[in-house]
Amino acid sequence: MQIEIERLSKTYGGNIQALKEIDLVIPSGMFGLLGPNGAGKTTLMRILAGILRPSAGTARVGMYDLKTNEGRLAVKRVLGYLPQELGVYPDLTAGEFLDYIGILKGMRNATARHARVHELLETVGLAEVATRPLKAFSGGMKRRIGIAQALLNDPQLLIVDEPTAGLDPEERIRFRNLLVTLAGDRSVLLSTHIVEDIAQTCPRLAVLSAGRVMFQGETRELLQAARGQVWTLDTTGPAPVGDLTVVSALNVGAGMRYRVVAQERPNAAAQQVEPNLEDGYVALMRRNGTAL
């Protein structure tokens, strides 16, 4: 299910432009969406989920036009959506909550719906607490309920916003693998601040900043953006300064080891290293003048 977006804009309240004429093609399979806060990622995902209407331009999910009511309704029927801030009903048990969501998603066969709820509770490791009220759940457990509800209707389009926030490392890896397994002939749109999640799962991605698409293409191409610009330097003195961005700082014995992105070698002791996706993202943001 391919998503095609052309000159898509979204303006709030008449003057706040969240998206500015973006063009984007999202093929089937896993696709990552990266960008700083306020880049327009959530607005884009809400439009693709049929929650918001575009102000201008077109957005098509498969054969459905998101500018029409019929198109939005058709997309909702094949959609699994996990918003960044997922609320639950504290008085319902996990099983009841998922059953309610299943009904609202149009799953009319009660036997099949109950079986699917049970299956997904097993998948996210919550089957044993299925009869416990959600008010007794931790943040991570609620996140897993959110993941389960998104998968209930076996969606053709899965949109997940920060899905691994609040999960422990083991759960995060399990969920990433689950997403990859689910992808295939369906589209999975993953928006996250955790670059590692995209590096591990998405062969293609787009980077948004200030409502515009800064980059779209293969993940390894973004990595190339930082080639020759990533350095490590060990020092016992102050942190490096100048036209560079410190990506990480590690305490090593008496001194510090900094990993920086800079066009020029920061000092004579700096060692050039292979870039990773985070370096590529930082280099792209530097190139586009977005301060980090």
Partner: peptide
Amino acid sequence: DRALKTTELLKSFPTSLGAR
């Protein structure tokens, strides 16, 4: 629904607002 932050999720379902 707004206080519990379930509104966004509810809006993503095909069930009509009137039915809910």
